[in-house]
Structure formats: C-alpha cells, structure tokens
Design a protein around this nucleic acid. Structure first.
Lengths: 340, 340
DNA sequence: CGAAGAAGCCAAAGCGCTTTGGAAGACTCT
DNA sequence: AGAGTCTTCCAAAGCGCTTTGGCTTCTTCG
C-alpha cells in the first residue's frame, strides 16, 4: 500500500494525502480525518527510503564507533545504550552505528553526513580540543556531546556530569576525615572527564593546603587489572596514600584485590571512594566492604541525550546549550578516619 | 556531484555510467576505465538514499535491541559489537540498532523488514522455539542467529559455541578430581545456551553415576549479586557442593566474595570454574585465585557473524549452515581435588 | 456587484539512482 | 549478400515520496 494507491482509493491527489498525513494546514479538517482514517485502516506506512530521498531526512541518529584490534569498546557504552534505547523505542528512532578506524574517524563522519545517513549524531568521551567536535560543528549536522571538551572558540551543545564537583566532594570528605595523603586512580587522562576529576581532587586538596603527589596519580584504561597494578604501586611505596579516589567501579575491584593481597584492610588502612556509573551487574554496596561512591546513572544520560537529539532534529532545541548534572556522593563503609 | 552530472561530463548516458560503476558486463572495458577514472577523480559517490529507493537494498545490517525499564542490556553485547565493528569497518557496513519493547519485538522486526531498512539481521540470546526466529524466517530477510534455538521444524543459519561440550569438559574435570557434589550457577535458563550448559554438566555427572542435585542448580541474570546469593545459598546448606561451575565471570566475582564471607577458601574448600567470554576489563587470571575457565571470545564471534551476514547479503552464503565453535578449557589455580 | 483574498485541492516536477526494452553498429556464418 | 548474433550503448520508465506553482471555488467587503 503506497501513497498512490491510497490517494486513488480516496479519490484525492497524492499531494493532498501527503499533506493531510504530515499535518500541513492547506487541507480541510474533514479531509484530513478521512485520510488519517483510511491510512490507519489500510495500515499505510510511508516508505522511508522514498521519504528520505525526497526530504533528505532519515529518521535515525548516528554514532561513529571507534574500532580496531587494539580498541576495546567501553562497557559503559552498553548502559548508555540502554538509556538511549529507552527513549528511542518510544519514538521509533533508530540508531546507526558506523564502525570506524579509531585513528581515522573523520572519513566516516564525512561519509555519514554527505550521505545524509542520519539526522543527528552524538559524540562521546571527548577530549580537549577534540577534532570530532570541530568537524561535526563545521559539517553542520545536529549533534550533542556526551561529556565536554575544552579549548574551543565556539560553544556547543552537551550533556555532562559534574565530574569536577563530584571528585572535589569525594576528596574533601577524605580530607575532612583527616587524610593527608590522597591518591587518584584515574581513567585515560587524555579525556576531559579524567582531567576534570583530577582538577576536582587537586582543588579540594589545595583548599586545605595539601597537594596530590606526583606519584599519587595514575591514569590508564579502566580495567580491573590496571586498578590492581596502580593500587599495588601506590601502596607499596613509602609514603603510601591513606585514601584513594578511583574513577571506576571496575578499577576499584582491582584496588580491593590489591589491598587484600598486601594484607591491608579497608577502611582501616585505606579509605576508598570510586565513581559509579550504575551498572546493573556490579553494585558498590555489594563490595566486600560497601564502597563509597560518586554516583551518576549513565543510563539516564543516554535517555536524555536521545531526547535532546530528537529535539534538535525537530528544531525544538537550538543553540549551544550545555547541561551539567550534579553527582551524588554516597558514603558507605569504605571510608573512615585516617590511620595514624 | 551526481550521476547525471557525471554522465553528462563523460558524454555518456546515466545507464552506461551506472553499469560501468556497478560492474555490469554490457560495457566495454575502455569505457569502464574512463568512467571509473572520472568517478574517482571527481569523488563521485552514489547517493545511498536514491540507490536504496531504486534497489531496496540499504547496505546496513540490523539488530533489534530489546529495551525497557526492567531490561538491562548484557555487557557481553559490547564485546560482541567490538567484533562486529572490526569486520564491518573494513566493509563500510553499518549497523542499525532498532530499540524495541522487550515484550513486543515482532512489531519492530516487521517494521524494519517492511521498510527495507536493513539487508540482514542477526538474532542473539535465542531461546528454544524462539518466536523471533520463526518470524524472520517467514519474513524472508537474510539472518544469522548468534547462539541456537531448539524445537523448530526448519533449519536456520547460526553461529554458536559448544556450550554443552564446554560444560561437559569442565564438570568432567571436577569429577575426575574426586568431586561428588557439583553445583551449577547458570544464566537465565529460558535461554538455550543455559540449557546446553546444564545438559553438559548433567551428562558429565551421569557418566560417573552422579547427578546434579535439585537444589544444586541456580539460574538467574548474570550479575555479581546473583552470583553471591546463589553461592551463599549453596554453601550454607548441608550437603554443600565442593565444586561450582558458573556461567559467567561476573557471577564468579560474587561467588568468590561469598566464599570469602563464609571463611572458606578456593580451591581448598571449593573448586570453581567459570565461563569466560573474554572481557578486556576483567580477566580470570587476575582473580584472587586464578580462575579456571571455559573460554571463547565473543568478540571473534561478532566478527564472524558480520562476515557471514555480509556473505549472505551478497549471495555468497546460502542455506542453513550451522557453525559450532569449540571452547577451550583453561585450567588455573581455582580447581583442586575434592576436600574430604 | 465586482474585486480581492482565503481555503482547498491538484498536476507535475523533482529527489538520484537502477533497470527494462530497444537500437545501432560490428561481426559471423552460410 | 543477407540473415543472425554479439557488443555497446541509450532513452525512458520506474522506485514512492515531498513540494512548487497554480487553479477553482467560496467568502468577504467596499
């Protein structure tokens, strides 16, 4: 059942039927009702390929997926996706994943824009002066950044959590508990979120006249193993930290293992706070010692990003609105006063 | 630059240019070269929307993503995706994720097929007599199942690992080590993979005249917490198992925690084997006691599925070929002779 | 009463590609 | 030489929608 047949059946022109269906004003209410009715009765669905060719709109949103043998997709991605799906599902919005060589995403961005494959894209894990951002900005496709970049002349729309504030709070709490030697086990410090977190910790320390020792900061991919290694190194050196702030629950798993291996205890010998993106399959309250966290649901962020992308596509949202979500500090058993 | 302009520029008809570009034989080699050359020089790229409207082919593969408030996407998904991306990237094949209400995926399948949004789909985590399978089979869209179903009249193309064999091996090893009371902490037993694993364990036990006690089998979503709960229940009852086979590394995390909480040790009091899908961020060799596993890279499976989907789209693969990958049993420190 | 304006509809021209059904010329064969 | 067969190309008809420009008909108002 296509437009031609439907309009024939109604003894109307394709123009009128098309307009009736798409809510244009040049058609009487009565006619519109008749058309809508017939369309529903016969289960008419406009052919997206045709609509697309005519309008250039695809009704899909895009994400360029960095891949490569040495590239691992972050497990956070799947939670973000859940949220995105939650929104997209109810709006018949599909997501196109375009895999790209992690070292050359530009080609892919250009392709999906030139081909008009998607109406909008989102960008995640941005870095300072991220080239992708500059690119999509000049390409002129609607976009939203999940996270933030730095060092651009122009503004851009984004959704981020208050990483700096969150880690500031976490560090401040630890300082208040008497800790003088803090360490930060961070994610990849080429990414903005990690920079913000470090900044938050440093500022909290500075506020009490403390500093983050040069050897008291690590930044690596967020795996259990890297968490373990970092913690071991930190804890085995002289002047070991009495508190650690950690960028991910998965790394915290490694920290906990290291602490155990060294015969130490949490929070007796070491206080630990980690960031929790809220995974359904790994919860901080279930750590051997319930883990204090800075918490923010990445899934909700996914839903919000989808919502805003949809709004931008339909022109409801414009400009470079940035949105920063506050982060909860949830105190559990893994923190205590500094040992002496 | 579109076909019209290009053909004008070459003083050829659109027909000829189109055919030259698409490798049809009705065009002389010399003309073809001229056309190819000009196309490359002017960076001509056929408009996919137009091609799509004309041919009905989209050059994309699809996946219906079950979503919902109570639905969590499995973290395995991201690894599978990495593999899929590895292949797809080098073939300019995009993946369309169509989020659907987990309880009504049929509508979405029908939509993407009717709209010809994708050229092929894959189905994951199938259950016995899975309706999605019957559906795509009748809808006539090329597909591949990642995993297997059971109880259908028809054959279908799939890629699966030898779950039954893997768990058979694991259980057999434990039995050989003298364990008489085994337990299985499984995934959701409505899914075929879980059924196969259970079958494998049961058969290994049966071969030695043993059985899997009714209360020695659990099946739940694969989270750390569920692993913990299952293990606690198992280990606190009288007649507790001396060995556990576990369907996921994440659950195994919970098992290890439970063992610790109860003051027991691995492998002294309990031997443990888990299935490892090979996550970059959580590795069995880094468990407190290196974990024995049945190992199979889900990432490689993703790449293979993409490859086969591409083959099916281009007609290189036909029929209902099933492919079952063997699984490695990797023995590490977490297994030992049964305590007495 | 006639002109101007609004409302409601339509025919047809795109969008940019593929594919059908020839047609013209070159070549082979009897 | 004439019939038949390839080879190589082309014009035009789709694919199914949106949108432009215009044409009636009906109101409204001086």
């Amino acid at each position: 059942m296509n437009l031609k047949q439907l309009s024939h059946m109604l003894s109307l022109s394709q123009t009128t039927v098309s307009r009736a269906l798409n809510g244009y004003p040049e058609v009487s209410e009565e006619t519109r009702r008749r058309v809508m009715d017939a369309a529903k009765r016969h289960g008419y669905r406009p052919n997206p390929s045709a609509r697309r060719l005519a309008t250039g709109k695809s009704g899909m949103i895009g994400y360029v997926l960095p891949t490569g043998n040495a590239v691992d997709i972050d497990p956070h991605f799947v939670e973000f996706l859940s949220g995105l799906g939650d929104y997209a599902r109810s709006h018949e919005l599909d997501l196109v994943l375009s895999p790209a060589d992690a070292d050359d995403q530009e080609t892919t961005y250009r392709r999906i824009v030139a081909n008009r494959q998607v109406d909008a894209v989102y960008i995640s894990s941005p870095r300072p002066a991220d080239r992708r951002l500059a690119l999509v900005n000049t390409l002129g496709i609607p976009f939203i950044v999940h996270g933030r970049s730095e060092g651009f002349e122009f503004d851009y729309p984004y959704l981020d959590i208050d990483n700096e504030g969150a880690f500031h709070e976490a560090a401040r709490l630890l300082v208040q508990l008497g800790h003088k030697r803090l360490a930060l086990i961070n994610g990849d410090d080429r990414e903005t979120f990690a920079i913000h977190r470090e900044r938050g910790v440093r500022q909290a320390l500075a506020a009490s006249g403390l500093t983050l020792g040069e050897r008291h900061i690590c930044s690596t991919t967020m795996t259990e193993e890297n968490g373990y290694r970092a913690a071991r190194r930190l804890l085995e050196e002289s002047g070991a930290p009495t508190a650690i702030v950690c960028s991910s629950l998965i790394m915290a798993l490694g920290v906990v293992r290291a602490v155990r291996d060294l015969g130490l205890t949490i929070p007796g010998d070491l206080s630990l706070v980690a960031h929790d993106d809220v995974f359904p399959w790994l919860r901080p309250e279930n750590f051997p010692v319930p883990l204090s966290t800075t918490r923010s649901s990445i899934r909700l962020a996914g839903a919000r990003v989808a919502e805003r992308l949809a709004a931008r596509i339909s022109g409801l949202e414009e400009g470079a609105r940035g949105e920063v979500w506050p982060v909860d500090l949830v105190v559990r058993g893994s923190v205590a006063g500094a040992p002496r």
